[in-house]
Design a protein around this nucleic acid. Sequence first.
DNA 1: TCATAATATTAGGTATACCTAATCAAAAAA
DNA 2: TTTTTTGATTAGGTATACCTAATATTATGA
Lengths: 216, 216
Amino acid sequence: MEADNSRTEEYLESIYKLQQEQHPVSTSRLAEHLKLSAPSVSEMVKKLTGKGLVFHSEKGVCLTDDGKSLAKKVIRRHRLSERLLTDILGYKWDEVHDEACKLEHAISPEMEDRIAESLGNPKTCPHGHPIPDKEGNLVKEKVKPLSELKAREKGIIVNVFEEDPNMLKYLASLGMLPDVCVKVEEIAPFGGPLIVCVAGSRYALGREVASKIKVK
Amino acid sequence: MEADNSRTEEYLESIYKLQQEQHPVSTSRLAEHLKLSAPSVSEMVKKLTGKGLVFHSEKGVCLTDDGKSLAKKVIRRHRLSERLLTDILGYKWDEVHDEACKLEHAISPEMEDRIAESLGNPKTCPHGHPIPDKEGNLVKEKVKPLSELKAREKGIIVNVFEEDPNMLKYLASLGMLPDVCVKVEEIAPFGGPLIVCVAGSRYALGREVASKIKVK
DNA sequence: TCATAATATTAGGTATACCTAATCAAAAAA
DNA sequence: TTTTTTGATTAGGTATACCTAATATTATGA
Ligand SMILES: [Mn+2]
Ligand SMILES: [Mn+2]
Ligand SMILES: [Mn+2]
Ligand SMILES: [Mn+2]
């Protein structure tokens, strides 16, 4: 019978994403992201180790080459799903994450190809993240968080590292979407907000939020 | 946590389909269709009974009103998925069944609506079967098997009660698709084939195959 | 009617993936 | 350095959905 790898895929996907923040991923961070208990994750990580998909370093869990390869396949399916949802079915960018997170496990390689083709082989998901190609290559643009720009500096939004629908909805309402130009007018002291200018309007943006927005 | 009803959905879907052939569905027939052992099905049917989705009559398993309602939801998602695959992603009618059978469990009510709308609220799947509406209403056309037509009688193909890709591929190669007109030229005796005329060409069609093709 | 065959269910077991409570180990604080 | 806190794992358990082998039930047909 055909195995159901959806849990394995979900773990690898999470590990891949979390390692972008800090390299070896801790059990607790992974458990938090997957909304599972630490022992559950601990146990599953052991199984993934047995399958040669992850290994344990000093500081935490790392993906093996096989694990990385599978993770990128899942991420490709996830991001293509998001594009299908926005470009063809008319979803907003804040509505697609959870749907795509289920769809990604129900998509065959055949279907993945067809979606990519039908969409004209898109390079990024609606949040600006690169879609790995069939071989697992993905182009990471050199970016920095909006929060690191200095006063009077400009940047173009590349992507938004955030999956919370409310946050995304909020950002969309300010017009802060990929490819949009943002200027930091001034930076309030003592960890205060950034005053940014987007399409002629000025907004005060918290540091936390600004750090999720990556610009070039 | 959100429950995974995919197995429940798969059982109800099968029961619904099989009961169209013969009303109360036997455990063995169900096991065969689901490609599972009889004891597995026996056990699962007991669980479905506990959930109030099916009940046991003399002759076999029947859907309760709740069961029928859920089954029709699954079938709606299945058939909309098939249409998405053919109409938007360019699949052939013989390639969609298995893909749709996985997709149908990963589609939210929200997404179901969006697919239906994007496709212009189609009335049937690529095989000619009606797509139940949101409320579970579905229009069954009055049809009979092609095998019951008499010599020289004509009919229009309404649907094909078959999910085997090879059979569907074969029928498509003869141009035998929904809405196509077929004329039975003659019927060979002793259970022999039907000689049919489709779009000017004549073909010999086995009785078994002809009984799967429903015409009006 | 009685034996045979088909169907359904029970019994007992496996794999997967989750949980809480308890324990162990490492890091940070006192 | 000893204590406390945080983090990870072990121990023991549950739910779900599958399996094979054995048994029971129902039909069929000789
Ligand atoms: Mn996911
Ligand atoms: Mn995305
Ligand atoms: Mn199905
Ligand atoms: Mn169909």
